[in-house]
Design a protein around this nucleic acid. Structure first.
Lengths: 193, 193
DNA sequence: GGAAGTCTTGGACAGTCGTCCAAGTCCTGA
DNA sequence: TCAGGACTTGGACGACTGTCCAAGACTTCC
């Protein structure tokens, strides 16, 4: 099972650096430093390889989300601290170790639109993110926290994708990113249903 | 030039129905009802084919945006009419003729993250969408319409992707979609900077 | 110790890919 | 009318793809 996990990590890395098209049996094996036939042995078909890589990336994202929840535990109820934490979490995914899994996550969404069998992974992530968002928003006193959470998650996903696409010279970083998130949060809190 | 346009339309259609991986010379030619060698004649390389297809999809999206602007012209200043128009515009992209170009747009964003030469198309679309959003938000009296427009565009992009990935049985349609957009707009308008 | 099973891997297979070319068709301008 | 060019296309090429197999290495249990 060790090699299987290594192969999946190499696959996610490949998606992040070269896109889903570059995900071939041989490239994955080479990325993991293993002989070419190893991918065929651990995965019955390419679809199985792609699916499991995307699911694994989702698990990684959910794990990172738990880290964010823990980080928020200390600073709960403080909107400024919340904005800082979310901004740091986004930038870690844009320029840090979470970049590949973040790419894979968007590829998963596009794949799931055509292949319903992938949707359970999507649903799991959506549930985790929305639960965290709702918990935070409820504690801050947002009206209709469920709806606000859905909106917050979608908006953050959109902002993250925009920043991802614009590359390193993006305007969506540092102080400007924090200002944007701050306004989003402020708006969701002050809205009266 | 007629055949070239037909090939690009077939390419966009292919991206929408089978994904970017399915974009091969032969499949595009077959989709356009043309002999296999025609793709090689009109596009020097596959990259050129992919790039032009993604750019063309962006033009289509910008065109549809102009239609939205015209539709809004009548009902300007009325938030309810604005929400209805945007909701109809989103659903047309999810289930109507704009679906393929919408798919292509997200693929473009992921591609542009790794290939900066594609970013000009992204910038053009971002400018067009943000200009329209800012114009509308300013007319409705939103504080800092520029920032609000960026937020609105990112949020709508996120909502659209979420709905796209969840498929036809999505919870993000009809009345619920309108309610979500209404809250987003309300929040952005009532926020006090 | 040896049988039974799993793991590992080099090599092969048919199919598809991007790309190219030479021959044929069509259109234009003198 | 006819030469020159652009357009069109069937077919071919090597490279790469997913998948499979047989043989060897290793592990586990009687």
């Amino acid at each position: 099972m060790q090699r299987r996990a290594e192969l999946l990590d190499a696959a996610i890395d490949l998606i992040g650096t070269q896109g889903l098209d570059a995900l071939t049996h041989r490239a994955v094996a080479a990325g993991a430093g293993l002989p070419p036939a190893s991918t065929s042995y651990y995965f019955r078909s390419k679809d199985e390889l792609v699916d499991e890589a995307l699911r694994r990336a989702t698990e990684l994202e959910i794990g990172r989300l738990r880290e964010l929840r823990d980080a928020l535990g200390e600073a709960a109820g403080d909107p400024d601290a919340l904005v800082d934490a979310v901004a740091a979490w986004i930038e870690e995914q844009l320029h840090g170790a979470g970049r590949a899994a973040c790419f894979a996550q968007y590829h998963l969404q596009l794949e799931a639109a055509r292949r319903p069998e992938l949707r359970d992974a999507l649903v799991a992530r959506a549930a985790a993110t929305r639960a965290l968002a709702e918990e935070v928003l409820e504690r801050l006193g947002a009206p209709d926290p469920g709806q606000a959470a859905l909106l917050l998650v979608c908006a953050v996903d959109g902002v993250r994708l925009e920043a991802l696409a614009s590359g390193h010279d993006a305007h969506l970083r540092g102080p400007e990113l924090r200002a944007l998130l701050a306004r989003l949060l402020r708006s969701l809190l002050r809205d009266q249903a």
